[in-house]
Design a protein around this nucleic acid. Structure first.
Length: 601
DNA sequence: GCCGTTTTCGGCCCGACTGTTTTCAGTCG
């Protein structure tokens, strides 16, 4: 059964599994195994299998631990996970360890993984560095590069040394991953600039920015032009460019001053669609698409779709053409992750995901009464100018002291002010309603920070965790479930508490939370603040599968924050959410009916 | 190591650029 030095694992141990591992952790271990095997010169297809399994696990809405509870069959039938990797998942769940990884690490230091992050160093070079010079950490590598030892090795020269030193420096300065809200504006600036270059007929951002992934490693730009040289020249001399990494006739890469890499591809107008599809990715989507093409006797690359016999060009001018030639509906970029979109596209005419125009209001915002910057009226007019029908004012409760949280008296006073403003709006003939809400703190014991009497008088109660983030998963899950079971909250805000790149999500079992939310009719928020995006795309998809409504909100603290809804909308689309899955696509009357019914009124 | 409309063996996506070579391996997306 077990090969290549992995410790034989007794599947009967599954019975006593401790369930200590989340999907992300298991995926990370398989990524590490793939990288290390590759450095070790293993069979590339074996390497790919581990990496592919990690991709699959990373994007799964169900947790492996839950599936494993169903016994040995619980993990069967997951595409990309066969007998060997399934066995290792059970082992990880039961023991928290992976014998194979431990075996590999006996022969190879863990620092190799850092070395692989250096630009220009792949598995082959990392392996050569380790076996020839014993280089095992970033520090070793920096030392060897600056002292000129690297150029003694075959395949390494002066330029490589300099490049390695530059890359180590920028790796240390940056985590290497940028929030979408940082990458996207740069992508838009560059595409607008290049779009104006004479002869450019189309130019747009591709890659993870176009797929609206929450973080981007770099910016990919595609342009159609018959004079690539001019476009490349303009690109590499843009004032935001710090370094030119590569410059060719079809492809160039630059490092921007802000520290993010941008790549430009220039193609002929005739194959713009094929190239756009190709460079939008994801990689997993492309691989699956090519595989599908092959089975149909076609070949697909960035230049178009070709018949294998005779290499006849069939399509490529637009993405629609390419998908059509494959017998598929056009797939929205947000779905291109090889998570079933290709199968659905075979039987669909069009995908109907959530659109920003479907939204009727916002259900989470703050005023200057707590930690916001504007008045009730200011926030209401900002929401109105977006075409909304309603806005819930949800200031913090007293437990959130740093945010000047409101006590019972202040909430009651605020409700009276909202009534007065609503009356004024009605008098002026505005078809707009401010909902009386609160973001009530869920205390460490799961009780709520406003008395029931206050919560019952609100139009909308949003519950949220703001403290004691370090509880273990059992305590935190019980805390949140208790708040849901109280029957006093209508929405659970930012359900995992994460801040992208700054704070890990707290330990919480989202499946248990969602089951409770479903039972008690509580919606889970997708907080659109670009640092949060919480629920994330995978959790949105889980909510859809479990039939839990999602409240799409901005958590605006200023009149300008309502713009952030765009990040939430596209995250929801990445989770396959449609209009009917979102609470605030309901018109006001339906929303109020829904909340009353939930409260049993 | 995984998978199957080529189904239990044999294949697994593909092209551009760089730095090192002197025709190409390695890296990257």
């Amino acid at each position: 059964m077990s090969t290549n030095g992995s410790i034989p694992f007794d599947i009967s141990l599954v019975v006593v599994q401790k369930f200590i591992m989340e999907n992300a952790e298991i995926a990370r271990i398989f990524y590490e195994i793939a990288d290390l095997l590759e450095v070790n010169g293993e069979n590339p297809f074996r390497v790919r299998s581990y990496r592919n399994a990690a991709d699959v696990i990373d994007g799964m809405p169900e947790s492996l631990k839950t599936l494993a509870q169903k016994g040995e069959d619980g993990l069967k039938g997951i595409h990309g996970i066969g007998d060997s990797i399934r066995e290792k998942i059970f082992e990880l769940l039961a023991t928290g360890k992976c014998g194979l990884l431990e075996e590999i690490l006996k022969q190879m230091p863990v620092g190799i993984l850092d070395i692989l992050r250096v630009s220009g160093i792949g598995p082959k070079k990392a392996g050569a560095l380790y076996s020839a010079l014993g280089i095992a950490t970033l520090e070793d590598l920096a030392e060897a590069a600056s002292s000129g030892k690297l150029r003694l090795l075959d395949g390494f020269g002066e330029k490589t040394e300099a490049k390695i030193l530059r890359s180590i420096k920028s790796l240390k300065a940056m985590s290497g991953v940028f929030k979408l809200s940082l990458a996207r504006p740069y992508a838009l600036t560059l595409t607008e600039y290049l779009g104006k270059v004479h002869g450019v007929t189309a130019c747009e951002a591709a890659g993870s920015v176009r797929r609206w992934k929450e973080t981007a490693g770099d910016i990919d730009i595609l342009a159609a032009c018959d004079n690539a040289e001019v476009v490349m020249e303009r690109f590499t001399t843009h004032p935001d460019v710090k370094d030119v990494i590569a410059k060719g006739a079809a492809k160039s890469s630059v490092m921007l001053r802000v520290g993010i890499q941008a790549d430009l591809r220039v193609v002929d107008e005739k194959c713009y669609g094929a190239a756009l599809l190709y460079f939008t990715g994801s990689k997993a989507h492309n691989v699956a698409l090519r595989d599908m093409a092959k089975r149909k006797g076609l070949k697909i690359n960035e230049y178009g779709v070709f018949s294998v016999k005779g290499e006849k060009w069939l399509a490529g001018k637009t993405e629609e053409d390419v998908y059509k030639a494959m017998g598929l509906a056009w797939i929205p970029p947000e779905l291109r992750e090889n998570k079933g979109e290709l199968i659905v596209a075979q039987s669909k005419k069009t995908f109907r995901l959530l659109e920003i125009a479907d939204l009727r209001g916002d259900l989470h915002c703050h005023t200057s009464e707590s930690d916001g910057s504007y008045s009730i009226e200011d926030m209401a007019f900002a929401a109105m100018s977006r075409g909304y029908e309603y806005l819930a004012i949800t200031d913090h409760s007293k437990a959130v002291g740093v945010a000047h949280g409101l006590n019972e008296e202040r909430v009651v006073a605020q409700m009276e002010r909202i009534d007065a403003v609503n009356a004024k709006l009605k008098k002026r003939g505005k078809n707009f309603t401010i909902l009386k809400g609160a973001e009530v703190d869920i205390r460490a014991d799961g009780t709520l920070d406003h008395p029931d009497g206050v919560l019952d008088r609100l139009d909308l109660a949003v519950g949220a965790v703001h403290s004691s983030f370090n509880m273990d998963i059992k305590e935190m899950t019980a805390r949140i479930v208790r708040a849901i079971k109280s029957g006093k909250i209508d929405v659970l805000a930012h359900p995992t508490g994460r801040l992208i790149g700054a704070r890990e999500p707290y330990a919480v079992d989202m499946e248990i939370v969602m089951d409770a939310a479903k039972k008690h009719g509580v919606a889970l928020e997708l907080n659109s603040y670009p640092d949060r995006l919480d629920l994330n795309d995978v959790h949105c998809n889980l909510a859809k599968h479990k039939g839990v409504m999602v409240a799409l909100s901005t958590d605006s603290h200023s009149v300008y924050n309502f713009e952030n809804i765009i990040y939430g909308v596209h995250t929801a689309r990445r989770g396959w959410l449609e209009k009917a899955d979102i609470l605030n696509t309901m018109p006001l009357s339906a929303l109020l009916r829904h909340i009353r019914a939930r409260r049993g009124l």
